[in-house]
Design a protein around this nucleic acid. Structure first.
Length: 756
DNA sequence: GTGCCTCGAGTTCC
DNA sequence: CTCGAGGCAC
């Protein structure tokens, strides 16, 4: 301890004055060590001395809590609490990128961009190209040039507050000059190869855990709850994008990056402007050639439309921008033995085969499981019966080639037939559910086999409950997948259906063996769980609809339904009403399917419309209001017959309906708000575009309208508020006139949204 | 009827 | 993250 110069003075022996002086000295020492670690070749003090200084600081603070300094090294501003990091909602969402895996997909991307913008093939269109760093993305918020917050990507909407940790990264400026009043800089935190090797060597020497690869090391280092540990990790940062801004940075991507560089950020030196698809391909090849000699990991090349005005026009799909793509390098592969095939049962009853593999390292991670998708994939055919992998099937005992799709999901790419064991048999996919024994059937044209057990099947019931408490649904704190499994199996205090979550506390009060007395539970954790459940008794309509776990009704569709119907009463009433019409639709669909099969067998053309009409006529007539409710349901943009019939089926299946009613009775449902985008002239209105649009493409017009809170429908009905008709408008314009729907032309539309 | 595009449902490892 | 398929435009 001689380096720190406080040998002999035991913490117990310190008086207040001595303790205060000691805390001041330790704070200075530790802060100095943190900065020295990044800026100087040789650390000022050894790791052991550093750790001792920190431990001593903590011990003195524990004994004299009143003396804790404002700049205490154990308590940096924005530091995480014991519960974890604070949450940060991103002002502008942090999206992921669409991928291209070969030159053709890159060309498709370019063609798609041109198509959306209505550009000719040969029209000039520039992109920027830069290496895709294999690290983790970070958003840095600067207010008046001062770093005030750093957040991880999280799910793109909400990330974690890692401000204290980010402040320890030398390449992240604490202050910048000449920047807009508000500037969110985005980029990648990563660890270089040499630093990674040195860190792992140090970790090994100290008996700590080593990291599998630089990316994990960077992620693990940034997410340290103790920022002083992050400070000792050699993290670096490349800036490549931005989020919220008080004023535009530039007119092009490349100028904006140059400005970030001028502000003091490190930007990647391999960033280039590419004037054509050929230049993009060449740049990709150049970066790929340098990959092995770069001092950090990259996994591809990112291309972005250079013109920011065009980026704005292109906008976003649900999870990715239309103006950027990541051209990924081919994935690393490895051979190993397939030791077994397990069947998992999902919440919809889908039977999913999972490969159990002899553990093998692929791209720096040990893989022991891989998805086998479905029955056909194992058999070596796709859903149309075309051979894949050259028609090779997959058998237990085979040598298989594994890769991680998108560097994440392990998949089986190939089979080595020369190593196939003698006497092996093709895998026989089970025709009954491995969990409940019910028959597992494949519907015509479906690639997955499903357990027909429904709510009787324990696997389905558990998975449905897990879905119910998942993030986009009820998201109850302290009630995750593990707890659901525990409660499902519980004899005394079971949760076998969603409604039982909301009776848990009452039932607990009535039993002798209280939750709070069990292993792993205490007063506090039980009380917290009950409080979290109570908090969710008030629930947004969209979350409730999503949580029901009805097939074809995911987060987006649930949101559409909630927005359309507004309240639980209106929604459930509409689905009830639509029931008879839905049944009739199902019958007609079955008849058409039969006709198709019969026609295929006889080698003649199927009489689709006649069969459909006949089936409709044969069914008992449905009340007009049922027909109207059904038409309204399938008329909602994004909802078709499949989702509608699934909804109707769920509400009309007695057991399922009873379960839904019990749940709804326990809740207070918050009505959905109309998407009143402020100042938008079309918020909440239903629009229809028809004819040829000349100033923007249809996709673009739709995206713009939706961004303004409008709903874009495909056909004109009494619900339509506004028809935008270009030249060549036909039946829709006529119908709009009949219904008295307001109709404007494209210029009128542009004027309306303020772009005239 | 055909060809995008988006969404849902499945998946692994840390 | 990928695949399949539903939904919708052409």
């Amino acid at each position: 301890m001689s380096e720190t110069g406080f040998e002999g003075i035991a913490v117990d022996a310190l008086d207040e004055a001595g303790a205060a002086a000691e805390l001041a000295r330790l704070a200075a020492l530790i802060h100095r060590a943190n900065t020295a670690y990044h800026t100087e070749d040789a650390p000022e003090i050894s790791d052991a001395a550093y750790d001792a200084a920190k431990a001593r600081n903590a011990a003195i603070e524990a004994r004299f809590p009143g003396l804790k300094r404002a700049d205490s090294p154990s308590d940096v501003v924005g530091a995480a609490t014991a519960e974890g990091f604070g949450k940060v909602t991103h002002a502008v969402r942090m999206l992921s990128l669409a991928n291209a895996f070969d030159a053709n997909e890159l060309a498709d991307f370019d063609a798609g961009v041109r198509n959306f913008l209505g550009l000719e093939k040969a029209a000039p269109l520039a992109y920027t190209g830069e290496p895709k760093i294999d690290g983790l993305s970070l958003s840095l918020r600067y207010e008046n040039g001062v770093l005030v917050q750093a957040a991880t990507r999280g799910d793109g909407e909400v990330g974690e507050n890692v401000t204290a940790n980010a402040r320890t990264i030398a390449e992240i400026p604490q202050e910048i000059a000449g920047a807009p009043a508000l500037l969110e800089v985005r980029g990648e935190v990563y660890m270089g190869h040499e630093d990674f090797a040195a860190l792992n060597a140090r970790q090994a020497a100290e008996g700590g855990k080593t990291f599998a690869n630089p990316r994990n090391a960077a992620a693990g280092s940034l997410r340290q709850l103790d920022a002083t540990i992050t400070a000792r990790r050699p993290l670096k940062f490349f800036a490549y994008a931005w989020g919220a801004l008080s004023e535009p940075l530039a007119e092009t991507q490349s100028e904006a990056i140059a400005r970030l560089h001028a502000f003091g950020f490190t930007t990647n030196p391999l960033t280039r402007r590419c004037e054509s698809l050929e230049e993009m391909r060449a740049h990709y090849a150049e970066i790929e050639a340098q990959r092995a000699t770069l001092p950090y990991d990259i996994d591809g090349v990112v291309f972005k439309v250079d013109d920011l005005a065009l980026q704005a026009r292109l906008g976003f799909r649900s999870t990715t921008p239309r103006w950027a793509i990541a051209h990924k390098f081919p994935a690393e592969k490895a051979w190993t033995c397939l030791e077994g095939i397990d069947i998992q049962v999902g919440r919809t009853g889908a039977l999913s085969p999972v490969a159990r593999l002899r553990p093998v390292t692929v791209g720096g991670v040990v893989v022991s499981n891989a998805t086998l998708h479905n029955e056909d994939y194992i058999a070596g055919r796709d859903s149309k019966g075309e051979p894949i992998r050259g028609g090779k099937d997959i058998r237990i005992g085979d040598w298989v080639e594994v890769y991680r799709a998108g560097d994440v999901i392990p998949k089986v790419a190939d089979v080595d037939l020369s190593k196939r064991p003698e006497g092996s048999e093709p895998y026989r996919f089970p025709e009954t559910c491995p969990d409940c024994g019910s028959e597992a059937v494949r519907e015509a044209g479906d690639s997955v086999r499903r357990c027909t057990g429904g709510l009787i099947c324990p696997a389905q019931a558990v998975e449905k409950l897990k879905h119910f408490v998942s993030r986009g649904a009820f998201d109850i704190e302290g009630l995750g997948a593990k707890q659901i499994e525990m409660f499902y199996a519980d004899e005394v205090l079971p949760i076998r259906e969603p409604a039982e979550i909301f009776t848990l506390q009452v039932r607990d009060a009535a039993t002798v063996s209280k939750l709070a007395n069990r292993d792993g539970w205490g007063e506090t954790s039980a009380r917290k769980l009950f409080a979290a459940i109570e908090e969710r008794r008030r629930i947004e309509l969209r979350r409730l609809i999503f949580a029901l776990g009805i097939r074809h009704v995911g987060e987006v569709v649930a949101g559409d339904l909630a927005r359309h119907y507004g309240s639980w009463a209106a929604f459930s009433h509409a689905v009830d009403l639509a029931g008879p019409a839905g049944q009739r639709h199902l019958a007609a669909e079955a008849a058409v399917r039969e006709e198709r099969e019969a026609a295929a067998a006889d080698g003649r053309r199927a009489r689709v419309s006649e069969t459909e009409a006949a089936a409709w006529a044969a069914e008992p007539a449905v009340p007009a209001e049922a027909k109207a409710a059904w038409d309204e349901l399938v008329g909602i943009d994004g909802i078709g017959a499949a989702a509608a019939t699934a909804l109707v089926a769920a509400f009309h299946q007695p057991a399922e309906r009873a379960s839904i009613d019990r749940l709804a009775g326990a809740l207070e449902v918050i009505d959905a708000a109309r998407p009143a985008t402020e100042g938008s002239p079309v918020a909440g209105k239903t629009l229809v575009f028809t004819g040829t649009l000349e100033k923007m493409t249809r996709a673009e017009a739709k995206a713009r309208a939706e961004a303004l809170g409008a709903k874009v429908a495909g056909s004109v009905s009494a619900k339509t508020d506004l028809l935008i008709a270009g030249p060549g408008a036909g039946s829709k314009a006529k119908k709009a006139a009949e219904l008295g729907v307001e109709t404007i032309d494209e210029d009128g539309w542009l004027a309306l949204i303020g772009e005239g």
